[in-house]
Design a protein around this nucleic acid. Structure first.
Length: 429
RNA sequence: GGAGAGGUGGCCGAGCGGCUGAAGGUGCACGCCUGGAAAGCGUGUGUAUCUUAACAGGUACCGAGGGUUCGAAUCCCUCCCUCUCCGCCA
């Protein structure tokens, strides 16, 4: 959520930010409503003040045994007026709030302007795609061939877009989760958390999933509960509506959780394999920082995520999302895209992590503040999040990059110990 | 799920429908005292919002939301959360 005062003082900058996102916003209406709000508020507070003063007098008169009937009559009328104006005020406040809560964040000046993912800016490339001297297969063929993935039976159990891992597949997925978590907590200084996989509406609103993107979520019927689409949601909200001490910043959390997404509107896209599932595993990184350090922290968060791919020896590149591809809450986002040789007949880079700085956008929604040692005023923290990494897609990338001619898959060195010393996945006998 | 108790400031803990933004304690900050420290003494110590150049002042907030009343932390209703006991359960 943007600060109303900031909008008013920087109207042109805010407008141009919204235009870059191709969002059409009627700011004139907002300003008009805000004026109305202020007028009402002043009137109400004046009346309340009067009521407070006179009520005091009434108390004194009663004590002195004087007759106060006429004042009571007067105040009865005043109270009714207040009640009426109060209703008007809360209506207009609700209107203003609904407006603000639906505004996306302003893209950072460094973000390229563009309409969609074709206009993202390439930042760097790491590693070289391996040359294969046989016809490479997509990961779903490899996985099903090895008997470690079974999409057919998963569909029987749940439906389309659900995974079923078996045997060494399940173990490899778990190995990846442990490897990623261990790396982030032991080498990158994150605190491991294990949050609820279901959260309420307030929590979803805090990070920006609600109110605009309810159709992307799974909601529990008849309850104020939603399945998390990413553990960014619970982790970022840990200190919601709190004022924390400056010494706690930067606050770095990581978690493994399953993630649940309805994938409404993506019919026909990525129908095969692990790329686009209703349920997938992810290790997430979240940071709460001071405003002046958030971009440095974004850079280190990105490198923390990259480290996983480097240790797995998977080729990738990094792009900066353009304004048209930028998420609702973010001011700037780097996507890490991993090389997937088995797809699109010749290979392509696929998003495997998304690292964002949200500035105080989420903090303002969720009420996450901190107090500096030397100043009294609470300030909003900056929030950052990034995948470290999407586990299912990492699994897929390993299958495709480490496949061999006979259909077996070599286990990356770093994972061997997590696989009980096993170095290759052959078809389970 | 059944029965009961409770949610007040950083923490503990008072609080009769008006004099309570809230006693008292504790913690914290600053000052005095001291060679230094402790003790002691003094002062200060929530958030939001509006008016104001500023000083300052107004308004709201005692789990949340409604209601009664001239006036609500205090009375009534609904909901949420915590604790204890019973039941059930991984």
């Amino acid at each position: 959520m943007l600060d109303l005062k900031y909008i008013k003082n920087n109207l042109e900058a805010v407008k141009s930010g919204m235009e870059k996102r191709r969002a059409k916003i009627d700011f004139a209406l907002l300003l008009k409503n805000d004026d109305k709000r202020k007028t009402l508020l002043l009137e109400i507070e004046t009346l309340r003040h009067k009521r407070n003063v006179v009520s005091d007098d009434i108390a004194k008169m009663k004590k002195a045994g004087e007759n106060s009937t006429s004042f009571i009559e007067q105040m009865r009328a005043v109270s009714e007026k207040i009640k009426k104006l109060d209703k008007e005020l809360s209506t207009i406040e609700e209107t203003i709030h609904d407006f603000l809560i639906s505004l996306p964040n302003i893209p950072h000046e460094d973000v390229p302007v563009g309409k969609d993912d074709t206009e993202n800016r390439l930042e760097k490339t790491h590693g070289k795609p391996k040359k294969f001297d046989f016809k490479v297969k997509p990961h779903w063929e490899i996985g099903e061939g090895l008997g470690i993935l079974d999409f057919t039976r998963a569909a029987k159990l749940a439906g389309a877009r659900f995974p079923l891992y078996l045997g060494n597949g399940a173990r490899l997925e778990r190995a990846l989760i442990n490897f990623m978590l261990d790396t982030h907590i032991s080498h990158h200084g994150y605190t491991e958390t294990l949050p609820p996989f279901i959260v309420n509406k307030a929590t979803m609103t805090g990070t920006g999933q609600l109110p605009k993107f309810e159709e992307d979520l799974f909601k529990l019927e008849g309850l104020d509960y939603y399945l998390i689409p990413t553990s960014e949601v619970p982790m970022t909200n840990i200190y919601a509506n709190e004022i924390i001490d400056e010494s706690m910043l930067p606050c770095k959390f990581t978690a493994y959780t399953p993630c649940f997404r309805s994938e409404a509107g993506s019919y026909g896209r990525d129908t095969k394999g692990l790329i686009r599932q209703h349920q997938f595993n992810k290790v997430e990184l979240v940071k709460l920082t001071t405003p002046e350090t958030s971009f440095d922290e974004l850079a280190s968060l990105l490198s923390n995520a990259e480290k996983i791919l480097q240790l797995l020896d998977l080729p990738y590149h990094v792009v900066t999302l353009c304004t048209g591809d930028l998420g609702f809450s973010a001011t700037k986002t780097y996507d890490i895209e991993v090389w997937m040789p088995g797809q699109d007949d010749g290979g392509l880079y696929r998003e495997i992590s998304s690292c964002s700085n949200c500035l105080d956008f989420q903090a303002r929604r969720a009420g996450i503040r901190f107090r500096r040692k030397d100043t009294k005023k609470p300030e909003y923290v900056h929030t950052l999040n990034g995948s470290g990494l999407a586990v299912g897609r990492t699994f897929a990338a390993i299958l495709e990059n480490y496949q061999q001619a006979d259909g077996s898959v070599i286990i990356p060195d770093i994972l061997v110990s997590y696989m009980g010393g096993q170095k290759v996945i052959h078809h389970d006998a």
